[in-house]
Design a protein around this nucleic acid. Structure first.
Length: 280
DNA sequence: GAATCTGGACTGATCTCTCT
DNA sequence: AGAGAGATCAGTCCAGATTC
């Protein structure tokens, strides 16, 4: 990887600086409570992802970002891995705007067998949250000799994490006293309600139907809901375009899931305060 | 305040399965 | 049998919490 300040400056002049663009986006969402849906900031998000991915494919580390003691290649890798946390943070902020409730990204939550770091949890407390959502971002462009990663790369691992976390969280409330007669009934009625919120960068050969099918399956067996936003390189190759969901999967859009979570929170938060955890 | 630990996100390499 | 896709695993990095 050849990387000097001139390369980074040239790229920055072309597509901007990912750290700066992230700071700007976060400040905008925090500063405007009217921003409550992903659709309201989708264009900026796709611009941010395009900017970051350009650095990735050019193998250039952004100036002044990441661990200064790491090599440029490791620094870029580290920055790139952080995109999932950006996604979780922005979704937490949108829900905060939509509900007026405190929602912290990466909240510690006690499950049955361990604590979990949950991307979005409400109420923001370790014991007995009522809504938990995991945010995921998958897919990445080719760089160097590495081929582009598809939206479903490593899905099998993540799916297992989702299923385990959802079940462990639901078991955590009553622990050893939990009684499960019917799996389907129990998992739908036991708090917390669990969601997957998935940002998927599609390769040209990725089909959106495969992504929606996977979410349908995991929601049909373990989770309470899911939402997807997908994007792929535009035909002119100058940025990312949102990929519409198939007509029969509109209910799986990211904004539909956010709306459902908002409704759950607002109903249980009336008249403004979340219900306390149950007494032991 | 530095060092260490922890959980989560993401990756490349490799193994396994499926299809033709 | 061979190719391609899917699944698995170990390793690295990060932020934040904890310990010294």
């Amino acid at each position: 990887m050849t990387n000097d300040a001139a390369d980074a400056q040239r790229l920055e002049d072309e597509v901007g600086h990912p750290g700066q663009r992230w700071d700007d986006l976060l400040a905008r969402v925090r500063g405007d409570a009217a921003l409550q849906t992903f659709g309201a900031i989708a264009e900026e998000w796709l611009g941010l992802m395009w900017c970051l991915d350009r650095y990735r494919s050019a193998e250039v580390a952004p100036l002044g970002m990441g661990n200064p003691n790491a090599s440029a290649a490791n620094r870029l890798s580290g920055i790139y891995r952080y995109k999932g946390n950006w996604f979780a943070t922005i979704l937490a902020e949108l829900l905060k705007n939509a509900t007026g409730q405190e929602i912290r990204p990466r909240q510690e939550v006690q499950g049955f067998s361990q604590t979990h770091q949950i991307d979005i949890a409400w109420p923001a407390r370790e014991d007995d949250p009522l809504v938990c959502a995991e945010a995921k971002v998958t897919g990445g462009p080719a760089y160097g000799s590495t081929r582009a990663r598809g939206a479903l790369s490593d899905w099998s691992n993540r799916r297992k994490e989702l299923k385990f976390a959802a079940t462990d969280l639901k078991l955590g409330r009553r622990k050893h006293d939990t009684q499960i007669d019917s799996w389907g009934f129990w998992r739908r009625s036991a708090p917390p309600a669990t969601y997957i919120l998935w940002g998927a960068r599609l390769r040209p050969d990725d089909r959106i139907e495969r992504v929606t099918r996977q979410v349908e399956r995991v929601v049909g067996t373990y989770l309470d809901g899911g939402g997807i936003v997908a994007w792929r390189t535009s035909s002119d190759g100058a940025g990312y375009d949102a990929v519409p969901l198939p007509a029969d999967a509109q209910s799986l859009s990211l904004d539909e899931a956010l709306r459902e979570i908002k409704t759950r929170i607002n109903r249980q938060a009336a008249p403004g305060q979340p219900p306390p955890p149950p007494q032991a």
